[in-house]
Amino acid sequence: MSDRDTFLPKFAALALIGAGLVFWARSVLDPYALSIVMFVGINVILAVSLNISNGFTGLFSLGHPAFMTIGGYMTAILVMPAARKGLMLPDLPAFLAGQEWSFLPALLAGGSLSALVAVIVGFPVLRLRGHYLAVATLGLIFIVQSLAVNLDGVTRGALGLSGLPSLTTTWWVYGFVLLTLFVCWRLKHSSLGRTMLAIRENELAAACLGVRVARTRVFAFALGAFFAGIAGGLWVHVVTLISPDSFSFGLAFQLVVMVVVGGTGSITGASIVAAVLTLATEFLKPVEESLNLYGASQIAIAVGVILILIYRPAGLFGTAEPQPLNLIKRLGSRHTSPANSPE
């Protein structure tokens, strides 16, 4: 219990510090830098939520891009002004055409639809193990993509939905980062979370102890999908466009890398690696451009992943949660990479 008692005040303190930083960032950074900050936040949401299934429960899913696509389209269609819908999507079913929601309920609806799909797909697919599940969820990306291309009455086909309002702000992203971190942290330290970890470690033993394995798995999968759907909705309203190719297999790989490198099961690890990786790819770009070696940053990251898999197979943090306050203190005092300071 003591863990929990210190958690809330600590979390609140961190949230406040974070809010201050967001406030500061908004006043000094240009729109480009701010959009990178937003993508850092979105990737944190994605990595941490993928960690629920891949890290806590040991379900190796690659399906996040599929859920982002579902959430992204759903949010975009709900938020779009009805007049614009008439122009862009004349064949939209009547029950969708008239809707004109505000951002928050639309995001939640997008997340919920993703979660619903995850439940429907989850019951059969989650019986699969290890890399079979990985490939089945990979198939899910292709299936959703295929639907998005071909159901042009709802999605406007390959062209995608464009000119969406840029509703997503750093505050929205920050709010959902906090929500994701809060939910995941509480989950990990709750009995349900321990149940998930038990399933990951030894499914048979967990089942013998009365754990409802199938149901817990589907819940983990759906919860991850919910946040992926919300992240999709946020993403779409930063870029102001969604197309069937917006969330592809390459993104799934990046997210898996964040989880695996951060340490499967470590919320802090996944968040830090998500942030570092997003920033690193952005900062590698000028290098790539000046060397005229386009694609070099992807190669560099892939090589890095292989090295980590060889030399630190449990990821940088394992399942452990390094003390966030201490870590930030350390980061504040010296500009060291978090990669050097595990535990």
């Binding site: 480009y32 995608g160 930063v238 870029v239 466009l241 197309s243 190719d245 917006s246 952005e282 770009k285």
Partner: peptide, 12 residues
Amino acid sequence: FDTKDDTREAAT
């Protein structure tokens, strides 16, 4: 700028 077949990269 290389936008890597990614609409997010195009926007950023």
